[in-house]
Design a protein around this nucleic acid. Structure first.
Lengths: 340, 340
DNA sequence: CTGAAAGCGCTTACAG
DNA sequence: CTGAAAGCGCTTACAG
């Protein structure tokens, strides 16, 4: 059982290589020149002993953990599938930059932010699914570590924020439908509870769509969507029954768009012949649900990646990273032929 | 700017409370009796200074990080939605037991296991999506930290393993269909690449289904499913065209079952009147995809939770936790009326 | 009930 | 180019 062997420390390496511990440390970090001969002896010793730097000790000495916190919330009554793409892109981007990810799903997000920052478990924090008056922001501002958000809060003071431009997304869709001749449109927004919770993307999109439609003289009928079956289906049916003369539908709701193909097929509604449909979702999401609709790309990969990159910039050099930034990803309409 | 203040250490608390650092430490841990008066002064000082124990320093001193690693793989060509439920249950269970989660998605899983274990970043590791000859297992066995697996490998030696009983799941389904009078059944397995990668749940389920059907004299037609559109739909159509006399379908394939309602509706196949359908998926998954089928519950919550609990047991007391355990969750058929 | 001191495994000025 | 030493912020025998 080699498991009895104590784990090798930098001191063991130093002894085996016949040098001092500081020399091993500098050989590891490259922070000062080491003779070729010495370096080779050290490398050899590291290999033989299977040495790896103890992360906790390094963190204590450098005051850097090389980890970032990823705060994710799972709300009851929520349609979760889109979340994974953000988690994944943050994780991948972090690793590429040499950071590990502490994944936190505590119900109490504020407490979680305080816990991981004040105990110095992480060098920075990424907040997912940020709401208008997100309680986690105060905790983040009070922390000594920087933070980056995916999702636009009401007050962006001092924080780096990344989000899709939902207002422009709505305008792009309305313009698209207008140019095709549509004059009466249904709009399905996120569920009411998303608005109530402060999911700003809901009203940012809706208000922009209504404003734009108004400018063109388009009749637009806004509705809340649902997030759970069977309510989703009931809801879609009710909306379609109520608006038989509408020629197009804008769906800004993951759960609704995922269920739409079924409902339309059952009702015998052909897309785009009977009804034009435009939506907003990530390409991967569309593939998962076999969605054939023209849609604005929601870009979870890009957003997660941007957030991490900016965060790491601030971690590495708090001074150079400049003032807080709010960045909106421009919508890109991917035409899949579901409008006419 | 209070941000200039250095972060409070245990020494600051000790000074403020007029006691020694060790007393503060013991007050924190509760590892020895402290007089009420002293304890109050310490609590007061902690509050005033906003003190939190430095996680890295504690980890260094105790050789415990209070974190577990969660190794998750994202394969190209994979249907991802089910993964999030495992991630979530592991994360929730870990937090309930006082552990944080280091979430790792490196392409090279072995290297990732070595990295986080040998650098002592975690006290233990949970492996998700384990394959028959999973290369991460050697790295895990070589580590000084314990590990728990979700998914059955070919060699379970020395490892705690948790998985659904896929063989029994298949038998339950075949029995169910047999008792309803079905004598010709279609079986849709996971995609071929899952089998090739060593996803043992694929053949464990399939072989058991074939064996059981054989015993009953049921004709069973096994097929690989697909994982991406439009291949999924093409595949289902081809299978149904090839087996017009089959009266039931067992679907052991997330992507296929998610797309099935659409295909059946388009073809005008009524369930269960024209075709009985049984599948295997988690309740949440079924809700997400609005699936109306009778199915064996895949229990991601239970599996993730069991893995974490066993892992923490081993972390806390490596001696008492006993020999490695392989636990299969019994299948539970949830009847949703899709068979007749 | 409490304190002084050693030690966890690193990094980094300081010195040569 | 290299070493001895201090220090990062904790915990825990050891002593009283």
């Amino acid at each position: 059982m080699e498991s009895e062997e104590a784990v090798a420390t930098i001191g063991d390496v130093a002894r085996a290589a016949g040098v001092s511990r500081s020399t091993v440390s500098y050989a590891l970090s490259g922070n000062r020149p080491i003779s070729r001969e010495t370096r080779e002896r050290i490398d050899q010793a590291i290999l033989e002993l299977g040495f790896t730097v103890n992360a906790g000790a390094r963190a204590l000495a450098t005051a850097q953990t090389k980890a970032i916190g990823l705060l994710s919330q799972f709300h009851r009554d929520e349609f979760a599938p889109a979340m994974l793409q953000y988690i994944r892109s943050v994780s991948d981007a972090a690793r590429e930059l040499g950071y590990d990810v502490l994944f936190v799903t505590d119900i109490d997000g504020s407490a979680a932010v305080r816990r991981i920052t004040s105990s110095n478990m992480v060098d920075g924090v990424v907040l997912l699914d940020v709401t208008h008056a997100d309680p986690r922001l105060d905790a983040l501002r009070a922390a000594r570590q920087p933070g980056a958000l995916v999702g636009l809060p009401g007050d962006t003071e001092g924080l780096d924020v990344f989000d899709l431009d939902f207002g422009e997304s709505a305008r792009v869709m309305v313009d698209h439908l207008y140019s095709l001749g549509h004059r009466e449109i249904i709009l399905v927004s996120p569920p009411k509870h998303v608005f109530e919770r402060g999911g700003a993307y809901g009203w940012r999109f809706r208000d922009a769509a209504i404003e734009r439609a108004g400018r063109y003289g388009i009749r637009i009928h806004p509705y809340y969507g649902e997030s759970q079956q069977p309510e989703i289906t009931v809801n879609i049916d009710a909306i379609l029954d109520a608006r038989p003369t509408a020629t197009a539908m804008i769906v800004h709701n993951d759960a609704t768009i995922a269920a739409l193909p079924m409902v339309l097929q059952r009702r015998g509604v052909r897309v785009p012949d009977d009804l034009s449909v435009v939506s907003l979702y990530a390409q991967d999401f569309g593939r998962t649900f076999s969605l054939p609709y023209t849609a604005v790309e929601s870009s979870p990969d890009k957003l997660g990646r941007m957030a991490v990159q900016q965060l790491v910039r601030r971690i590495i050099d708090p001074g150079q990273a400049g003032p807080a930034v709010v960045k909106f990803v421009a919508p890109e309409l991917v035409d899949r032929g579901s409008t006419a």
